[in-house]
Simulated scan of single mutants.
Amino acid sequence: MVRTLQPGQCCEVWTASVTGESSLVFRTEDMLLEAPNWTLDGRALILNGDGSLWRLDLAAGALTEVPLTGVPALNNDHVLDPDGSGIFLSGDDGHIYRAPLAGGQATRITDDDGSLHFLHGVSPDGGRLAYVDIAAGDFARPGRLRTIASAGGPPENVEVGQGHCDGPEYSADGIWLYLNTESFTTAPGHAQLARVRPDGSQFERLLDSGTVDWFPHLSPDGRLASYLRFPAGTRGHPADLPVEVVLVSTNDWATPLHTWPVFGGQGTLNVSSWSPDSRLFAYVAYPLDAGRGA
C-alpha cells in the first residue's frame, strides 16, 4: 500500500553526523518519502515515494524520479547493489526486483512460491540477498529469515528462533546478518537486536532493553550502527509516533552515543542509509506541524 501524508503533515529528510549533529536536507508537503539509501558517490539519496523511486541530489536539494519499467508500486524495502550500478527493490506485489539505478527495465528475482518477500540486505559481493518471508501472505505468522541468490533461485532458511524477525542486513565482511527479532521474549512485539551467521549458527542477542528496537544498520567501516527505538509495548513498526534514532558503537550496543527524537517510525530508517565514508547517515521524519516552515 502506498503511504501518503496526513492533512497538516510534512516529510523531512535529515542527515545525522556521527559526532551528533543533524541537518535538514529536504522538506516537502507534497509526498511521503521513505527509507533513504546513500549512493556510492556520496552525492545523493535514493528514496521511495508515491510507489516510485526518487533520487535526491544533496548539493542541489533537487528531487527527481528514477524512471523504472516492469515493476509494480514500490514499498520502502530497497538496497543498492554493491557495484553501485543497480538497486534491489521490493514491490507491493510481494516480489523482489533488480533495476538499473539510473532507470530502466527491472527484472524479477523471486518466484511465485506463495509467500511475500521483503528485501533488506545484500551481501558485500552482491551475490546474495537477505529478506523476510511471510508465508501465504499471512501477517499473523512470524516472518522467516531467508537468503536467495541475487540472480534468483531456491531460497535458503536461516534459523533464528520462533519469533517474528525483520530487517536482516549483511555486515561489511559478509560473515554476519544483523536483524531485529522477537525470539528472545514472550512479550508481544518486543523486538530486540541480534545477529546470526548466514548459515544459522551463532544466533545471539546484541542488546537487552525495555524498548522495542528495530532495523540495525552498520556503518560501512563496521565501527558504528544506527537503529530505530520504539516505545515499550509497540507492536510491529507503525507510523506516526514518537521514536528515537539511535547511534551506538558496535563494541557497545547498550550505550547510545547519540539519539535523535523523531516523529515517525515506519519509513524513518527501514534500510541502511549510511554514507560511503561512514561519517553520516540519513533518516526521515514526518512532523504534523507542516505550517511551521523549515
Rank of each mutant, 00 (worst) to 15 (best):
R144A: 15
L247F: 10
A254W: 00
H164K: 02
G126D: 10
V262G: 00
D125M: 09
A187I: 13
V79S: 08
V71K: 02
V158A: 03
A59I: 04
L45C: 08
H120T: 02
D289W: 00
N270C: 14
N48A: 11
N157H: 08
G121R: 08
Q202R: 13
L68Q: 01
P7L: 07
I96A: 05
D252C: 13
W176I: 05
P67I: 00
C10N: 12
H78P: 04
L47E: 06
T107D: 08
A59N: 12
E29L: 05
T255K: 11
A232G: 14
P67E: 07
A239G: 14
S150T: 14
A99F: 02
F118E: 15
A16N: 07
V248C: 02
L40C: 03
L58C: 06
S201H: 12
S278P: 04
T255I: 03
D138N: 15
S85R: 15
G143R: 01
F184S: 01
Y227S: 05
S201G: 15
L40G: 04
G20L: 11
P67S: 05
L280K: 10
V212L: 05
I96V: 15
D277W: 02
L218C: 12
L45F: 08
A16S: 05
S85A: 13
V13H: 12
Y178C: 07
S209C: 06
I134F: 13
Q6M: 10
G264M: 11
L288I: 10
V271S: 12
G91M: 02
G137N: 10
P7Q: 07
P256G: 10
G143W: 02
A35E: 01
W54M: 05
T185D: 10
N157I: 12
H120Y: 15
N48W: 00
F263L: 11
R55T: 08
R197C: 13
A106I: 09
N37E: 12
R98A: 07
N270F: 09
L5R: 09
E204G: 06
L68I: 01
S273L: 09
A282I: 10
Y286I: 08
L58F: 05
G153A: 12
G126S: 06
R292E: 14
H117V: 04
P220R: 09
G265M: 09
G222D: 04
T28F: 04
P287K: 06
L40W: 10
P256E: 12
E169Q: 15
T69R: 07
H217P: 00
N75Q: 09
P154M: 11
S219D: 07
M1D: 13
T234F: 07
A254T: 13
Y286W: 03
L32R: 15
I87P: 01
D240Q: 10
N251G: 14
G42L: 12
Q266P: 00
V271G: 04
S22C: 06
G91K: 06
G94F: 06
T268L: 01
L206Y: 02
S90A: 14
R205T: 08
F263N: 03
W260G: 00
D83A: 14
D113G: 13
A239H: 08
G51M: 09
D113R: 12
Y131A: 13
L177H: 03
D125L: 06
